[in-house]
Nucleic acid binder design. Structure first.
Lengths: 357, 357
DNA sequence: AGGGTTATGGCAACCGGTTGACATGGTCTT
DNA sequence: AAGACCATGTCAACCGGTTGCCATAACCCT
């Protein structure tokens, strides 16, 4: 039964003890408030606002008007409780301060908000333990997750994938979806370039031991170097930061190579900084290259020759893939992202003929 | 009354039709499962796990053991529904790809996860409308928000602050908490440095019109320039990116100043890039300075002289302040963050005596 | 006009915790 | 030994939506 209270004055009337249902402590209106104002049942409000067509146009209009007046918003938690869908996905990163992730974040954020999803960002600070803790903390409140540059063991990743949908970036694990760059394409272009310049002996400055991508790059380099008859040594593992690259100079010089291929741009930049301080001429005495083409790589002098990854696209694709799966659509096949060699000033022909042992 | 069923075999017994309460569709255990396994009421489980001391040590141990075995996690949504607390805060940024925000993100993330809070990141892409939309979308699911470099109108910010606690970074609005750098300290150091080198006429390359911080820097520069008898012109507004800085070179040269103070490092770097392409000698013909000391500022050549902001600390303080308020503690007074001048290679004495009109 | 079909909206149970009120049993006090 | 008090654990209502099921009303057909 409908009461005859002047509903326009609930505000004034509500100044009494509790004004039950009229105006809640939190200030936010609920479907019950809307239902009362529109003179229908709460369930009808729920349907009118989220099941288009289920309710007659006239009633729906009345409900929408009431919702509008009350500035009603669905409570995402209440909705999630029953449906199990939080409309939220997580992006887990090894290191937020590494410029490689900017593109990934931006791409992911765009793709997520385009579908009305909210993005949560968690950082593992290059530690598998921290990453595991972060993941288990946010797992219950997300619908799925994107693991970029994960430092987790493959088994652990599979465990997570059992609980919630997972998409990996720059990492491959059996039975888990992944967005990967075309490593061999990039490495081939890089080796062709170095070969053409006349380099015969290279060093690879590897990344963290747990980095899947560092391993892949090494494998491709090894294969390519062999087939071209080039010498190749691995120097590492290195911390994937400017400091890490800086610390590697001595070993690079000791290796007597004419070119150094760094696992990523940060290491390459650090190496160049250290070289400059030690009066080692880059690129003439030593050519240096990186991977990723991060912000800063074209700023540094000499500007860095590097293999560009489509990071923003990777973030976007990862989220789209995840969301497609969540929506029940079968995600389109994930072809590898193209890797393009960007030739700048940090590579040149070696000054003297390579010393062949 | 306690039943005598062999509780150790619920798993086997649970293989029947639905195993109601035994194992849920989602795979996650609930307090009901834990309660059953531990032989207590659900409410006791809730208290044991979240109200330390409320339950006897013996019972609590039993419950914790059961929870452990079932790999129980609280459902954050269910909890939030009743308590109204989501244990989540939002960080809203104008532009994720701007390196200034790295430090803020990292500091905020650290402070948040230290207290068990989850951080949501939203990007406004330098647009007030996008920012407003993002904020209203995430508002119901967060306990509070940090607005860094907000492009929102002051009134709108106040509106938001009424609904949820808000802490601002690099922006001041009446009655809203804010973490601010000590602008006058930084500007004073900068002007002292330029004055000492012999510069008599400066240009300020301002940022976006809606940037509160750009305005503040300008005011402080104006005041300091006046008291030192230096000439000062404003050139702008400029888009706060490298491109934006690049585009400003012509006007800077036309202004015939010996030093350019850019709103931020990105603009400064862009200006230097354009100068290098036009064979304008930095720092001898033109000194350039920035603000923030972002990643890349010491990489660029010449390395940029800039006013460093404690960005990571800003992010951390903002979150701590917010969390203190949420916990009912009165947040400690927010003293301004110190701003330190970092002198590098982009500033020098002007080549010829300053032209005084 | 009668019987059948469909569109519409209400009822109530449920999602998974939280918490005030209260029953119970044990300990302490005098 | 009796009463007061405290510690412990249970009951049940509630947070705000969602959804299966059903009652009702409206419309259709012959």
């Amino acid at each position: 039964m409908q009461s005859d209270e002047p509903e326009d004055e609930v505000g004034a009337a509500g100044t009494s003890v509790d004004a039950s249902r009229g105006q809640r402590r939190n200030g936010a209106a609920t479907i019950y408030d809307v239902a009362e104002r529109a003179g229908v049942a709460p369930s009808t409000v729920s349907r009118a606002l989220s099941k288009p067509g289920r309710i007659s146009a006239a009633t729906e209009a009345k409900i929408r008007a009431a919702a509008e007046e009350l500035n009603f918003r669905f409570n995402p938690m209440a909705r999630a409780l029953h449906t199990g869908r939080t409309q939220t996905i997580a992006l887990v990163l090894a290191d937020i301060t590494n410029p490689v992730v900017f593109g990934i974040i931006r791409g992911a954020e765009k793709a997520a908000s385009a579908e009305g999803y909210t993005l949560i960002i968690a950082e593992s600070q290059e530690s598998g333990d921290v990453e595991a803790a972060a993941v288990s903390r946010i797992l219950p409140s997300v619908d799925g997750l994107v693991l970029a540059t994960s430092r987790l063991a493959s088994d652990r990743i599979r465990d997570i994938a059992v609980e919630k949908p997972v998409v990996l970036i720059n990492r491959a694990v059996d039975d888990v979806a992944a967005i990967l760059p075309n490593v061999s394409q990039g490495v081939t272009a890089l080796l062709d370039h170095l070969d053409e310049l006349g380099h015969r002996s290279l060093a690879y400055l590897s990344g963290p031991q747990v980095s899947w991508m560092s391993e892949r790059r090494w494998e491709n380099l090894l294969e390519g170097a062999e087939s071209r008859g080039m010498g190749l040594v691995e120097i590492g593992p290195n911390v994937p930061t400017i400091e890490g690259g800086r610390a590697a100079l001595r070993r690079v010089l000791a290796a007597r190579v004419t070119a150094a291929v760094a696992f990523n741009d940060l290491i390459a930049i650090g190496l160049m900084k250290a070289a400059a301080e030690s009066d080692v001429d880059v690129p003439n005495r030593l050519s240096v290259t990186g991977f990723d083409d991060i912000f800063g790589s074209e700023l540094v002098v000499p500007a860095l020759t590097t293999v560009r990854s489509e990071l923003e696209l990777a973030g976007q694709r990862a989220v789209e893939h995840l969301l497609a799966g969540l929506a029940g659509r079968t995600p389109e096949a994930t072809d590898a992202l193209s890797a393009e060699l960007v030739i700048r000033m940090s590579t040149a022909a070696p000054a003297e003929p390579a010393v062949v042992g």
